[in-house]
């Protein structure tokens, strides 16, 4: 069942086209990764989905209802954190949560509110004003607010921005719990491929407001297409040695001191052994996850495909 169906969505800001003829579908139970570089149009699309901005063209259906005519009914079933988790800094976490619960039409007991804060690890600081909170704590409070009315669909726009590694891991685990234990549908946007890779069941990549690719994460993050960045003490020697070896076919390009290779993830240990045997001085060998590299991969010779085959 399609929870979200977006058809030919566009948004113009003057002469600038932020989103251009974008269509995609989010199915029930998906953790839908929404990927794109900064300025790609992710936030604009999510803002249109949350009715913060009006589309110039196109239509959005959520829970099989047109968003334009059923805004209130739809928003009752959505919880969202858009960009930063901004709340009232002069109020406590508890008061913020109570206030936003009431806006969603709920009059929750103190215990219910504290349970919600407990879920995001803020119960002990529940009565402290938010201005004393760290960025990670604010983010967790933002998520508690988004979940307080038990929505079916959760929209998280760049939820790990500004978080430390532990905070990022916490958010990731929370998203997985929301999907697996509580059977929620989650749309999560990010410019970090590595983040989405670990949690998404389906992925949409957009660039300059247009769809680049949409499909299941398993297909999109094909282990046979893994990009690896090799840094050596002498990159010219390493490049020449690899070209004359059985690894010539996986060489992609040389970027200064780095060499980019594309190979199956399972072949990386063998590559490592071969580098040692060829007496190449390896400084580092790491997986590449940046969108820039990924775009190079998915857009090579095939711009703006409609859908990735499942």
């Amino acid at each position: 069942m399609a929870i979200v169906s977006v058809q030919h969505l566009s948004k113009q800001f003057g002469s600038f086209s932020a989103v251009n003829d974008l269509s995609f579908t989010v199915e029930a139970g998906d953790v839908y990764g929404f990927l794109g570089q900064n300025g790609a149009g992710k936030s604009t699309t999510i803002r249109m989905l949350m009715t913060l901005i009006a589309p110039t063209a196109g239509s959005i259906k959520v829970f099989d209802m047109p968003l334009a005519t059923h805004r209130k009914e739809i928003l009752q079933q959505i919880g969202a954190v858009i960009e930063k988790p901004d709340v009232y800094k002069y109020l406590s976490a508890y008061d913020n949560l109570r206030l936003f619960a009431r806006l969603s039409g709920l009059q929750l007991s103190r215990k219910q509110l504290m349970d919600q804060l407990e879920m995001v690890g803020l119960a002990e600081r529940g009565y402290d004003t938010v201005r004393t909170f760290s960025q990670g704590m604010k983010q967790r409070l933002g998520i508690a607010i988004a979940l307080v009315h038990n929505p079916q669909l959760i929209v998280l726009d760049e939820p790990t921005n500004g978080l430390d590694p532990q905070g990022i891991a916490d958010i990731r685990n929370l998203i997985l719990r929301l999907s697996r234990e509580w059977k929620k549908t989650v749309i999560v946007s990010s410019h970090l491929l590595s983040e989405i890779e670990q949690i998404a069941t389906r992925v949409l990549i957009i660039d300059k407001g247009k769809k680049i690719v949409e499909g299941s994460a398993a297909d999109l993050f094909d282990p046979a297409q893994t990009l690896v960045e090799l840094t050596t003490t002498d990159s010219s020697f390493a490049w020449n040695s690899l070209q004359q070896s059985q690894w010539a076919g996986v060489l992609k390009e040389q970027r200064g001191a780095q060499i980019i290779l594309q190979l199956h993830r399972n072949d990386i240990p063998e590559l490592h052994k071969a580098l040692v045997q060829m007496q190449i001085g390896v400084i580092s060998l790491q997986l590449k996850h940046s969108l820039e590299d990924y775009f190079l991969q998915v857009t090579a010779g095939k711009q703006h495909v409609d859908a990735f085959s499942n």
Partner: peptide
Amino acid sequence: GTLRVLMTKP
């Protein structure tokens, strides 16, 4: 930034 949060409520 709370206007954004408020406007995502029903």
